[in-house]
Design a protein around this nucleic acid. Structure first.
Lengths: 353, 353
DNA sequence: CTGAAAGCGCTAACAC
DNA sequence: GTGTTAGCGCTTTCAG
């Protein structure tokens, strides 16, 4: 029993009190010294730091956070960690946050509304100093996020935002992306352009479609309902959509796909059917997934600055934390049209090595 | 001033004391009720829950954690979040951890020793209940990790492990991976097989090379130093290595590349030189990156069960947390050889759609 | 320049 | 079944 206690005692972390006792000074002095408070003489500061070092002292952030009512933590909620776009954003957030002394906690919603709610509540209970969110495809109600606003806790949306919540948002210019893809296809001489759209409850996908529609209009091409198919944009939906389009009495000669995944699956399907790309059919994707550059034919696409987006999101949240302001901005990051083989009937420009 | 204070007060979070005061009971009763402690009568429990709800009460995990000396947080340190293998592992960890009521905090070392040290210390200060780590390429000293062992804080290594630290480890069978790749190339009739190796201070890469060497030996093929080039395995090193190999008086007719990235860059380089794959040169990668399946020719590779690895790592750390045991295991997950076009001189089997 | 004391919000012996 | 009390480890007035 006594043995055990001795052992326990030996193992438990040293605190500022332990080092205070050792030095026969008060805990507050130790606390101040460790924070390099100039009110403590250099001599005592050195003495304290040295002993802290040899005792293997580590400040207990938990206690400090409780006292300061600040967790030094920022939460990030994404649909899927394991997706290049999102992991890049996370990477960007982490970089900026770490430099500012913040810890990043992550969770994934798996695009499920219920999990998103659970996560967000857990983040709230954990007293994150700010939350960065890209909402789940499935989410239609946002009470769980509104409480952050109510409690005045910094909140930033990226990519998939909630229009009805007034806060900082950071998106890419999906509309212009869609517009430029379509214009590009028209410029390349394609006449009948289909679109695989994403879920239209999400702004990003709706904007891409609007860009597409407006580009058609601007060029005097009628918008044809039968050429626009909405789905969740997984591989299989790409195949299904292209199948459906090809069965039309008047099939398309180009398709603007809502993402690179469907662009690829459509392309493979078409290739197996003996349809040549880009000669018989132009294909453009969206997102610039790593694979789109290296497949054959390489896929034209829209690049989104994911890492930058993460950095910006982190900066915005840090700003909100620092200023608790009432004025919010929506940052629109530019997209870049990357023209590759899949939509270019003329000569290829990009060279890999 | 007074106004401000009033406002502050209004905004500050309700605590169990607020609930207690309102109900004219004690804080401990509230605490117990909220934990569904059966010692509290159902009636009071209901009353308390109800008021908590209407007051918008959220438990302050920080305070609870401090009191319980437990953060309910597990840390994960990876070289780069933004890499398919690692983000898949994280995804697996997150899934298991979340179900068990744990929060996951992540950081990336960018393969830099110094950042890794800083991160790990910060995780320690944040009192993570356990740490899951894949060490940075650059790391050569491990004192920052040993302190977790010293303080008896659960620690699990995955993929890139530290042999000298005794704890749970979870790796893929890199040796067998290397062996089977090489055997496969030999079976396909390749005679002179080169190897782009990774940094040999990392077990994973050393094992891959050993598997390669042993497969050669088993087949009576002499090991040729000039055919083995070590690098950090980024795209550029792939190009450099293949260049160097092709300048040899007796160049290889197949290359086992340390990862898919170098396999791809080598392939593109060779293709530009007019060398046909797999006819003139067989190529195999490692890791089964998403792109390796969809490039042309598709790349034969070794699949590592990343998501599973993350799940296992989380399970191991939860086990350590629960049992603080002294016996550790090294879990070796099987790898799978995926034969695709780049190494198969005969007929292709895998079909995409 | 240093110390004493109070308290962040929650929990858990220990009482009754 | 419920209340009292004493902290978890740190910060920060306020005193001196």
């Amino acid at each position: 029993m006594c043995f055990n206690q001795l052992a326990m005692h030996k193992k438990s972390e040293p605190t500022i009190h332990d080092i205070a006792r050792e030095l026969k000074i008060s805990a507050s002095t130790v606390s101040r010294a460790l924070q390099n408070n100039p009110r403590i003489s250099q001599k005592t500061r050195d003495k304290i730091r040295e002993l802290a070092e040899t005792m293997g002292y580590r400040p207990n952030t938990l206690a400090s956070n409780l006292r300061n009512k600040k967790s030094n933590t920022i939460g990030i909620v994404v649909p899927l960690i394991n997706r290049h776009f999102f992991s890049s954003v996370i990477s960007g957030v982490e970089e900026v946050a770490f430099k500012a002394g913040y810890t990043v906690v992550i969770s994934q919603s798996n695009d499920l509304a219920n999990k998103e709610i659970a996560i967000v509540q857990s983040m709230f209970a954990n007293r994150v100093d700010g939350l960065i969110v890209s909402i789940a495809m499935q989410s239609t109600t946002f009470e769980h996020l509104k409480i952050f606003k109510k409690r005045n806790i910094p909140l930033v949306f990226f990519d998939r935002v909630v229009p009805e919540i007034e806060t900082d948002k950071i998106v890419v210019d999906d509309y212009m992306g869609g517009f430029r893809v379509t214009q590009h296809l028209i410029d390349q001489g394609y006449q009948r352009i289909g679109h695989m759209a994403g879920p239209q409850n999400l702004m990003t996908y709706a904007d891409r479609k609007n860009g597409y529609a407006d580009a058609l209009k601007k060029n005097g091409i009628p918008y044809d309902e039968s050429l626009v198919i909405s789905s969740t944009l997984i591989s299989e939906s790409g195949v299904a959509a292209v199948q459906q389009m090809m069965e039309l009495p008047n099939p398309p000669d180009a398709i603007f796909c809502g993402n690179d995944t469907t662009a690829l699956s459509a392309m493979i399907y078409l290739r197996n059917k003996g349809i040549r790309i880009p000669e018989d059919m132009g294909i453009v994707g969206f997102s610039n997934e790593p694979f789109s550059k290296v497949v054959s034919p390489s896929i034209s696409t829209i690049a989104q600055p994911a890492f930058l987006m993460g950095q910006k999101a982190a900066e915005l949240i840090l700003h909100q934390i620092a200023h608790k302001g009432k004025s919010y901005q929506t940052v629109v990051l530019p997209t870049e049209l990357i023209i590759r083989e899949s939509s270019q009937r003329k000569k290829i420009t990009e060279k890999l090595f």
